[in-house]
């Protein structure tokens, strides 16, 4: 069989048990709450009748494996259950929330790659000043907590200067310009740390390639430096860069939780945090499930991309 196809199939096969384990863990969350989760959810309103009613509504009295089977069957049909507080179907809620989180994370990643890769290349091949400045930026980006940076950005750009709205959100479909204006500060907040990691990895990967004999050969041949750096060296340094982008996407999904809360953006992260404080377990489960699935899909895509740009990886998978 085609080794590439085999690699893709093998990697897809590995994803299924991971998704299964993740779904079991998230399914068990509500069952692992110490004491009676329904009593905790209802709080002072709890009476024996209301507890029995909610237990029946959430099917908590069925055998565990039946509950899991029904829950999984519902998920596969797009039924994520019901919001415990508002009684709204969670699939609708998630359909509103997920695009917001995806927009922030994807825009941040785009910005971080657009800034990080060229700066990482300059840090590797540029002069002393390029090296020092990028090193300073990397240390800054890694050390400063993202949400504090966000608050400082609000202080400067929204508070003192009144350039940008400090927080809020409008959907892209209603007002594209307004939507992007609201996105500027959250995206900057998340992108700085991501860019720092991408710079560091790009620099390391480029330094590893620049000393190789084929680069010396290209120089001797008289190839233009620009072409050597961007066409030949960067391509050979692509594997670690793609890998770190994939890993950092997971970090971004975590960071989005904090940044959504900070900027009052209606994404999945803020949904989860609010739901935890309200003991709204069905929402917590649905939110965690969506983010964890995104995370697993991103690692899958990363591995596939790395396999395609570096045939050594996919060939190794075959043996």
């Amino acid at each position: 069989m085609n080794p590439r196809l085999l690699f893709v199939l093998r990697r897809l096969g590995l994803t299924i048990p991971v998704l299964f384990v993740m779904s079991v863990v998230i399914f068990l969350i509500i069952r692992l709450v110490p004491g009676d989760p329904v009593r905790t959810m209802l709080g002072f309103r709890a009476t024996p009748e209301s507890i029995a009613q909610v237990r029946a509504q959430l099917h908590l009295d069925d055998p565990l494996w039946v509950q899991y089977r029904d829950w999984l069957a519902g998920l596969l049909h797009g039924d994520f259950g019901q919001d415990f507080v508002s009684k709204a179907p969670l699939s609708e809620l998630l359909a509103q929330r997920v695009p917001v989180t995806l927009e922030i994370t994807l825009l941040s990643m785009l910005l971080a790659v657009a800034v990080g890769v060229p700066l990482g290349v300059r840090a590797a091949v540029g002069g002393r000043w390029a090296r020092r400045l990028t090193e300073g930026f990397v240390v800054f980006g890694i050390s400063v907590p993202d949400f504090w940076l966000g608050i400082m950005l609000v202080l400067v750009c929204a508070g003192t200067m009144m350039w940008l709205p400090p927080s809020g959100y409008v959907p892209f479909t209603e007002d594209p310009g307004g939507n992007l204006t609201y996105m500027i500060l959250p995206v900057l907040t998340l992108a700085v740390a991501e860019a720092a990691y991408i710079i560091r990895t790009t620099r390391g990967a480029m330094l590893g390639v620049i000393g190789r004999p084929f680069i010396v050969y290209l120089r001797a041949k008289g190839t233009r430096e620009r072409s050597i750096v961007y066409r030949h060296a960067l391509r050979n340094a692509a594997t670690p860069i793609a890998t770190v982008i994939g890993i950092q996407f997971g970090v971004l999904l975590g960071g989005a939780i904090v940044v959504e809360t900070l900027f009052a953006l209606p994404g999945v992260g803020r949904l989860i945090v609010t739901a935890i404080n309200q003991r709204n377990y069905p929402v917590v489960q649905a939110g965690l499930l969506v983010v964890a699935t995104l995370f697993i899909l991103v690692s899958l895509i990363t591995d596939l991309v790395v396999g395609f740009i570096d045939p050594q990886v996919s060939d190794r998978g075959e043996s």
Binding site: M22, L288, V291
Partner: peptide, 21 residues
Amino acid sequence: DMLLVLPALLLAITLIAIVGP
């Protein structure tokens, strides 16, 4: 390895969702 199927902050939040803050 199963602990690595969730992003770090989300794993922490999952535990807190169960046990309380």
